[in-house]
Design a protein around this nucleic acid. Structure first.
Lengths: 245, 245
DNA sequence: GCCGGAAAAATTGTTGACAGTTGCCGGTCC
DNA sequence: GGACCGGCAACTGTCAACAATTTTTCCGGC
């Protein structure tokens, strides 16, 4: 829920509204407040934020470019829905980029960074024992982020999270399989070892496989679902459902 | 040069201005009409296109997200300038993604696509003999595009050209070394062979190296330049030059 | 002749208004 | 009963205007 207009920061122009709105919409998508397919009502959103439609439109246009929204002529912006094909495509791209990150990181990773990773792995082991899926999920994300950060490739550091965010727009969220936590952390340990030994090629291969293992799990849950559910069909041409208000 | 307002398409609302403006600015950057560091004057551009500032701002906001522009509070949008570090980072990312494209393509590439690539390689050989650098450049780009297309990864097909466009914003353009054309096409031939044999791993490795070879050449020209020129300094803190009108 | 500072001009960030489109509702006709 | 049609409300795409801010210009003083 959103206050209609917290402070009226009228007239001291020290920051633009646009990035704020952009982050706010991203947040709403992240928390599931806005789910795939729903329309962004510019007027309502602007009113709720206590500003006018101009900046809102600019923010939406930006979010369109990074793949979180799509626009339809005379109908406005919609929260994008990621198809199965797109989700699988994203896994492949992430695998490649993650491998690249590891190859780069292996050559320059510092002791401090390695130590941080080791600690994350330990804490993930603890979360597995608990078991505490939510914590594991968080730690796992952090571990991945650390690898990307260690690459010291600013463009990659910027790009990778965007791809992950887009993956979250897949219609069905919550893809964490409890059973896979242990094998996942085993993979983390192997990755850590490769990085520690500055084995770029090895780290790249392991990281790539780590993501592709995630893709395989993802595919399995899809098959399970389509077997359980009323078969949504292997290739749905269009099922865009505005369904506003 | 741009007509002040070609047709006054007042009132039949069949398309939004925003994508048109976006493409127009992209074009202007592509042709060098707008070079790195220059400011986008919203009013002037809007006037020239015969529209108002709103759509122009939306287009700029979109271009900011894909990395072609950057914004500064109360100063507007500037054509981005890609630093050496960023250019090198981009090469690494492109290498990883290109390799991924090849791995994916090898498994599913069709005879038609292979034949098209073979033809491109032949024509590049011809361009080398001529020698016709401009044609080689075009054909080379087309070859790379074909590989990415063959991956059938829509997200990758969308992402890869964006990275290449950003690389074009590096301050010094025209990075094609005539001497490297032959070795470059030899690499193409090896890549083609790997794809033909459905050797995903081999294709990935070759494609990655192909881009990294480009990175190495890029680095060499940098070193040559900094030796020849009056040393522009390894790290210039700010040299943003609006210099409008 | 060059520097500092105030005033003017130019430009951005934002707003409110207007025209055109879409979607919905109810009535009419078959 | 169901399909078609006209009007109406909601909303988008665009514009013109306003206030804040940056940049340029101009002018007196050292």
């Amino acid at each position: 829920m959103l206050r209609p207009a917290a402070h009226p920061p009228r007239t001291p122009r020290t920051a633009s509204f646009v990035p704020l709105i952009q982050r706010e919409i991203e947040r709403m998508i992240g928390t599931g407040e806005l789910t795939g397919g729903t329309r962004i009502n510019e007027s309502t959103l602007a009113l709720r934020l206590g500003i006018s439609r101009g900046p809102v439109r600019e923010a939406c246009r930006a979010l369109e470019q990074i793949g979180l929204l799509r626009s339809e002529l005379n109908r406005g912006f919609f929260v994008r829905e990621v198809s199965t094909k797109e989700a699988l495509d994203l896994y492949d791209i992430r695998a490649g980029l993650f491998g690249t990150a590891g190859r780069l990181a292996a050559a320059i990773i510092t002791m401090v960074q390695l130590r941080a990773m080791a600690e994350l792995i330990e804490r993930m082991d603890a979360a597995i024992e608990a078991p505490d899926i939510a914590t594991f999920y968080t730690l796992n994300n952090e571990f991945h982020r650390q690898v990307v950060l260690a690459s010291d490739n600013d463009k990659l550091i910027e790009l990778y999270p965007l791809l992950e965010a887009e993956l979250h727009l897949f219609r069905r969220r919550g893809l964490v399989l409890p059973g896979s936590m242990r094998t996942s952390n085993d993979e983390h340990k192997a990755i850590f070892e490769a990085l520690r030994q500055s084995d770029g090629t090895g780290a790249a291969r392991l990281l790539e496989r780590h993501i592709l293992a995630g893709k395989a799990r993802f595919l399995r849950t899809l098959e399970d679902d389509s077997a359980t559910e009323a078969r949504p069909g292997p290739l749905d041409p269009r099922q865009s459902r505005p369904k506003d208000r």
